[in-house]
Simulated scan of single mutants.
Amino acid sequence: MAKPSIVLVHGAWADASSWNAVAPALQDQGFAVLAPPNPLRGVASDAAYLASFVAQRVSGPAVLVGHSYGGVVISNVPAEDARALVYVNAFIPEEGETVFQILGGSGSAFDIPDPTTVFDIAGYPGAPEGDAEAFLKPDTVHRYFGQDLPEASRWLTVIGQRPITLSANASPSGAAAWKTLPSWAVVGTDDLVIPAATQRSMAKRAGSTITEVAASHLSMVSQPQTTIDTILAAAASL
């Protein structure tokens, strides 16, 4: 049986380079690896883009891997477009849930009364009324987002971050693909963005096979082997 393709979906404030420590090891194992751009504009449109990408760029079975908000996106791709889901420090939403709802009361560094203490908010051309983009303040990256990365890597994250719209974080998730697909979850126990307890709760609800790693929200950068091993386990199960 042909090996599945591995599709790596980045989250907010990131791009495909967030998978640079993971992708080569998967390629060395003979997998076709793709890391498409995630538009970060809205759940429905981002999922539609990923589904279109998979339909046109992937032949055969696919394992979809999502980090952070990327977990919302892969959860909203029609189940027939994938064979397995892997969540890395990710949101695993139930239908109707939003990112803001999941983080509410979680103890997240982002669940605070004044979001402008951790985000820089900026308008963007063509934005619907009331919408804007959120950028991470440099201090947010250093203290909460990737606190276990070397300082130089944290500054690269600050410099190259891709913003997410506020509306994407407030958009309700659609039908959950994890209800019909097997899933795996990497839980970063030192994650200050999506606290470990919240990750575990979502993963248990989805029936995911859970692996924990002592790492920040960017565990696939700071401790990539755990993510690599989890993806390989998902692929081997097909």
Rank of each mutant, 00 (worst) to 15 (best):
A32F: 05
E133P: 00
A196P: 12
I92N: 04
I210K: 10
F31K: 04
N89F: 04
V99T: 15
S219I: 09
A2E: 14
L192K: 09
A234Q: 02
V72G: 03
P113F: 06
P93K: 05
S237M: 01
A197K: 09
A177Y: 07
V158A: 04
V158S: 14
P113D: 03
E80K: 15
G96S: 15
P182I: 05
A206D: 07
P138R: 03
A109Y: 04
P4I: 10
A122N: 06
D120A: 02
K3W: 01
G126T: 06
A235Q: 01
V221T: 00
D148H: 03
S171P: 02
Q199V: 01
Q56V: 01
D190A: 14
S173K: 06
G207H: 10
L181H: 12
I121P: 00
T198E: 04
S183A: 13
L166R: 04
L181P: 06
G30M: 08
P163W: 00
A62D: 08
P138F: 15
V86P: 07
V58F: 07
A44I: 04
A84H: 11
V118D: 09
P115Y: 08
A197Q: 08
D15H: 11
N20P: 01
Q56P: 03
V158F: 13
L181A: 12
W184R: 13
A235L: 06
T189G: 13
P113Y: 02
A79K: 15
V65K: 10
T226Y: 05
V43C: 06
A176Y: 12
Q147F: 14
A82V: 07
V86S: 02
L34R: 05
I74D: 03
V54D: 00
N89D: 11
F91P: 12
V73A: 07
K3M: 06
R162Q: 11
A197D: 05
T140L: 02
L166A: 09
N89R: 10
L8T: 08
K179Y: 10
Q199G: 02
V187R: 08
I102E: 07
W178V: 02
A2V: 03
S108L: 06
I164R: 00
H10G: 03
L156Q: 11
F91S: 05
T227A: 08
E151P: 01
P138V: 10
I194M: 09
G146N: 04
P138T: 06
T98W: 08
